[in-house]
C-alpha cells in the first residue's frame, strides 16, 4: 500500500446516488460521480447550495445510505453499512432520545456500539467534561437549550471513541453567537483528539474557521467542484476570524459558491406559468 493510501481515512470513489427508481416521478439524482479522499486527522468541510447532496455524501460515507454506484472505503474496509466502531455521527436535528437523560443517552449509545458495561459510566463522564456539560448529566434533552443539546450530542459521539466524526450541519439550527463559541470549542477539541472530521455546513465563515480543507459542491446533481486549503493550525483563536487571510479565503469561497447557488435556485424556482394562470383566472371573474 502506498503512503498516500495509509494516510487516507475515508476514500470515496466515483460515487453516484439517486433517490427513487428511475421511472418514478420523485426520482432525484442527488450525487454525480463524486470522488474524494479524507486525510487522517483533518477537518474537511463540505459546503454547497442547499439540496446539492452534501448530506447524501456524508450518509454514504458513514454507511447509512448505500450508493447507487461507486465505493467507499474506511481505512482498508469497504463500507456496506454503519460502522459504529470507526464512525460516529452528529446530525443537525436533535437526535438525543427525549425519554432518556443525557447520561442515559450516552450509556445507551455505548451499549449499541458494544462498549463493555463497566467502562460506560467513566467514558460518559469524561466526554461530558470535555464538552462542559458534566453538571447536566441528569437533565432531559428538553430541559437544555439548543446549543447544549448539540454539545450533548457531541459528547455522545465522543464517548464512542471513534477515529472519525461525521457532522451534518451540527450547529445549523443555532444562533450565530452560539455557533461561533461552539466552533471555537470544536477546534480546541479537535487539536487534542486528532480525530478525522467531515463537517457539513452552509456557513462560509464556519467553513473557513474550522476546516483544514473545504470541498465546494456544484449544484445538484452534486459533485465536488473544487477543494481549497485553509493553512492555519488548530486550535484556532477568534483573532483568526478577524484576520485579513480569513476574509480573503471566505471571499474566495463565496466566489466559488455564488454561481452554484444561482443555478440551484433556478432549479427549484417555480415555473413562470403560475403567473399566467392567475391572471387568466382573474379575467373572467371580474
Amino acid at each position: 500500500m502506498t503512503q498516500a493510501a495509509t494516510n487516507t481515512a475515508i476514500s470515496v470513489r466515483n460515487v453516484s446516488h439517486s433517490f427513487g427508481e428511475a421511472d418514478e416521478a420523485r426520482h432525484v439524482k442527488a450525487l454525480l460521480d463524486t470522488s474524494l479522499d479524507v486525510t487522517r486527522g483533518e477537518l474537511l468541510c463540505l459546503i454547497g447550495p442547499s439540496g446539492c447532496g452534501k448530506s447524501t455524501l456524508l450518509n454514504v460515507m458513514g454507511g447509512l445510505i448505500a450508493p447507487t454506484t461507486g465505493t467507499v472505503m474506511v481505512g482498508d474496509k469497504p463500507v456496506h453499512g454503519p460502522m459504529p466502531n470507526d464512525i460516529a455521527f452528529i446530525f443537525q436535528e436533535n437526535a438525543l432520545f427525549p425519554w432518556s437523560t443525557i447520561h442515559e443517552n450516552m450509556i445507551l449509545g455505548m451499549s449499541f456500539q458494544g462498549v463493555p458495561k463497566a467502562e460506560r459510566a467513566d467514558r460518559a463522564q469524561r466526554a461530558l467534561e470535555a464538552v462542559g456539560l458534566d453538571e447536566f448529566a441528569g437533565h432531559y434533552p428538553s430541559q437544555l437549550s439548543g446549543g447544549m443539546r448539540q454539545r450533548a450530542a457531541l459528547a455522545r459521539a465522543l464517548s464512542l471513541e471513534t477515529n472519525i466524526l461525521l457532522m451534518d450541519e451540527p450547529f445549523g439550527a443555532l444562533d450565530e453567537q452560539t455557533r461561533m463559541v461552539l466552533g471555537e470549542d470544536l477546534s480546541v477539541l479537535l487539536s487534542r483528539s486528532k480525530k478525522t472530521i467531515v463537517f457539513v455546513t452552509h456557513s462560509l465563515g464556519e467553513a473557513v474557521f474550522l476546516a483544514d480543507r473545504v470541498a465546494v459542491f456544484s449544484a445538484r446533481p452534486g459533485t465536488i467542484k473544487e477543494i481549497i486549503t485553509v493553512d492555519e493550525p488548530h486550535p484556532r483563536k477568534s483573532a483568526f476570524m478577524t484576520s485579513a487571510r480569513f476574509h480573503q479565503q471566505r471571499d474566495q469561497l463565496y466566489d466559488l459558491l455564488h454561481d452554484e447557488i444561482r443555478k440551484s435556485m433556478a432549479q427549484s424556482g417555480k415555473p413562470k406559468r403560475a403567473y399566467e394562470d392567475q391572471s387568466s383566472r382573474a379575467g373572467p371573474a371580474a
Binding site: 459504529p84 460516529a88 455521527f89 446530525f91 437526535a95 449499541f112 456500539q113
Partner: peptide, 20 residues
Amino acid sequence: ILLTSARSMGASNWQILRHV
C-alpha cells in the same frame, strides 16, 4: 432521525425495538 442515529451507533433491530 432517532432511528437513523440509533442505527449509526450500531443498534440491532431488537435494540431499536426495545430502546427506541
